[in-house]
Nucleic acid binder design. Structure first.
Lengths: 216, 216
DNA sequence: CCGACGTTTCGGCGCGGGCCGAAGTGTCGT
DNA sequence: ACGACACTTCGGCCCGCGCCGAAACGTCGG
């Protein structure tokens, strides 16, 4: 259990945890961006990033004078999701901006590479309704065909996985299938990010698309 | 991400992590037992236990002058499993006793309420062979009937869940179904604990039972 | 009722680690 | 070539926290 403590220690610091939370949007951030986000000096951020990379949680990608970092993969996102689901949402959003931001996150957001929030729950309900997945979020044989018609190709990665939503406390669809659907929705302009946050909305085109697929 | 850091901090200490690791056997331990296990003074253990309980990871059950503690539920076990799978096994078992103990754990052990190790992998393979679960560890309709014949009754808990094995790096069966099978195997004397550890072995009766069920 | 035992509280010690600013390195744009 | 910029390294500060032992409390057994 020695190793467990070491991984936990990496996430036990509010600044490093804030970095990981920001990176849950699935994009790569520069060191300076993360420093500003967590309100610490660049030198402090640099040291934290080095530790997170050595611990295998993050990967870096140097480009000129920039140091881009990103989550090391879906397995890290799953770890963070599991822990966040256990910990529950942060207690008190302070101020009007923070409140409206957290409401937007609750309506819909990306969870690294798939959809979460009320939007994620709606997607799951639709998929269950269509018989693509069972109530336990296992892909059905007919569901696999349905996914393939949307361009899904099975890989080594687990096709479906339940991810516990930390705002709704209900499992939604993660894994390769969840990631693929999210990708397709972005490509088709059915969902769109709000500003630079993880929050997303269903566009009018998306609403129509979902209706045509029988998701709503 | 504030809340994530707080949960992580609970597990970021080697002593508290050792407590949780010991409690992964699913039983309730007294404060003194845990103190001896982690080689710290009783007073130190007492303070750690209070913190873990306040953090929701453990529950206590006072009985006379004893303070029994146990994991707060399957969700805590899942959290620990996810983190341990990410962290990997502890590096170096020291001495002959430690080596043979870790080999026994690799052969078969309980993961809170279900089977893991090579034994868990064997069980999974058998279940896939029988068509009880898919390769992704989702229960099939016929598999549900098979489980019910073994006394399984669906509840609110998720029926099947993939748990990543930290010795084999392969997912095995957790969730309500995994817990039920483990329980049945213990009742029938098919598996037995080695000493007081989490390690288990398949008994001769168990080998025959598994053969009759078509698991091996 | 008394001693043994499991547990808790408290004071105090020492280490680890998170933070910053200053100075240094490397890269880009002009 | 030069300054601006992103990042890193280092020294130093200080707070948090894990540890223990001593003492107190509660329970059990005789």
């Amino acid at each position: 259990m020695e190793a467990l403590a070491q991984v936990a220690a990496l996430l036990a610091d509010r600044t490093r945890a804030a970095f990981c939370g920001a990176l849950l949007d699935g994009r790569a951030w520069t060191a300076t961006e993360l420093a500003a986000h967590a309100r610490v000096a660049p030198s402090t951020a640099s040291e934290h990033l080095t530790r997170l990379i050595e611990g295998g949680l993050l990967v870096e990608h140097r480009q000129g004078r920039h140091r881009y970092v990103a989550l090391a993969g879906p397995h890290v996102a799953e770890l963070l999701e599991t822990m966040t689901a256990f910990a529950g949402p942060d207690s008190k959003p302070r101020g009007l901006r923070a409140v409206s931001a957290s409401e937007a996150m609750a309506r819909g957001r990306t969870c690294y590479d798939h959809l979460a929030g009320k939007l994620g729950i709606a997607l799951k309900s639709g998929l269950v309704e269509l018989g693509v997945v069972t109530a336990d979020l296992a892909i059905t044989p007919s569901g696999l065909i349905w996914l393939k018609e949307l361009g899904f190709e099975p890989s080594k990665r687990q096709v479906s996985r339940a991810c516990l939503d930390w705002t709704e406390r209900v499992p939604h669809l993660a894994g390769a299938a969840g990631a693929h659907l999210c990708e397709v929705f972005f490509e088709r302009g059915w969902i769109r990010r709000i500003g630079t946050t993880r929050a997303v909305v269903l566009t009018p085109a998306g609403e129509q698309g979902w209706r045509e697929l029988g998701l709503i």
